[in-house]
């Protein structure tokens, strides 16, 4: 047991206690959490800084507004409805088209207008928010997945998670939806996590549940060695999020749109640790390196350059 403990320590694998005690508690002041827990605030901050986000079509804050929803939606063919304080992808409704007065979901099922309104009312009641607090519903642009990533995912929207520490991207992975994961990009629900080389933006090994895989189980395409488009933009977006929120340790989720390029989806003040498995690399050594040297890195370019120099593979 002690041998295993030492082996993990030598590889720099970070445990939950260390993440919480030495990084989240130390670098993420609690008063900044609302900036990332509320997706609407995150979106506004990112827009002010000129970072790409999915366009906001409208916000529903009280039940009365839900009745006017169809009028608001009439000008959009497809859109996404999500809770402002949701977590783990819960409560997200994607509408990919219309048929008469019906709304069509990506899997082909049709929704009545009343069902759509009911879903929004549920979001407002806090059904999907942390702690069950009343919430608001965001209606926004539906991502058209970039063709490179589309070939290695099954339905849903793959996203790129980058862990940023003091503005320096330290570890990254791309999360690919599978049939089992029901189109969701959550690793514990069965999505594939593939590590990404910070220096080059090419994918490394991929982990599916606890196994290492090389091909996507549904599409059959090779997963490792794929070049993620716009990689430098992704890194600079991720790095800018530090200036955006002030959170020292955060996870930045970015999607790639066919037409609009990288768009910031959400930020996370308590990013998970499975990204270490997807990369087969521990976080600790990289974090310590940044802790020692980040004082000399004053802007995004310097931070990204530092990451590319030190964190290849």
């Amino acid at each position: 047991m002690l041998k295993h403990y030492r082996a993990l320590l030598n590889k720099g694998v970070m445990g939950i206690n260390k993440r919480n005690g030495d990084y989240i508690l130390a670098y993420n002041p609690r008063h900044l959490y609302p900036l990332v827990d509320d997706k609407l605030r995150t979106k506004k901050l990112a827009t002010e800084k000129g970072l790409g986000v999915p366009e906001l079509y409208g916000v529903v804050e009280i039940v009365r507004q839900a009745q006017d929803l169809p009028k608001l939606l009439s000008q959009y063919e497809d859109f996404v409805i999500k809770p402002a304080h949701g977590s783990g992808g819960e409560g997200i409704l994607i509408i990919s088209g219309r048929r008469g007065s019906f709304y069509r979901k990506p899997n082909g099922l049709l929704l009545k207008e009343s069902e759509l309104v009911h879903h929004v009312v549920n979001i407002l009641s806090g059904m999907y928010s942390l702690g069950g607090h009343p919430d608001s519903a965001l209606i926004e642009y539906r991502i058209q997945v970039d063709p490179v990533l589309e070939s290695i995912s099954f339905q849903g929207v793959p996203d790129i998670r980058i862990i940023v520490f003091m503005g320096v991207p330290v570890l990254s992975m791309v999360r690919l939806p599978t049939r089992i994961a029901n189109g969701k990009a959550n690793l514990h629900q069965g999505a594939i996590g593939a590590g990404v080389n910070i220096a080059t933006g090419t994918t490394l090994n991929a982990v599916w549940f606890n196994d290492v895989v090389t091909e996507h189980p549904d599409t059959g395409h090779k997963i490792s060695g794929v070049q993620i488009p716009y990689w430098d933009t992704l890194l600079s977006f991720a790095s800018s999020c530090y200036d955006l929120t002030g959170l020292g340790y955060q996870g930045v989720d970015i999607v790639l749109d066919k037409k609009k390029g990288p768009l910031i989806l959400e930020l996370n003040a308590r990013p998970g640790l499975n990204i270490q498995i997807a990369n087969m690399t521990g976080l600790s050594h990289r974090l310590q390196r940044v802790e020692a040297q980040h004082h000399g890195l004053h802007d995004t370019e310097a931070r990204v350059a530092f990451a590319k120099q030190h964190f290849s593979v």
Binding site: M1, H4, Y5, L8, L9, V13, G15, I16, N17, K18, G21, D22
Partner: peptide, 10 residues
């Protein structure tokens, strides 16, 4: 302030 691994993390 114990920031070592949890047993289950091994």
């Amino acid at each position: 302030r114990y920031t070592g691994y949890r047993l289950t993390e091994l």
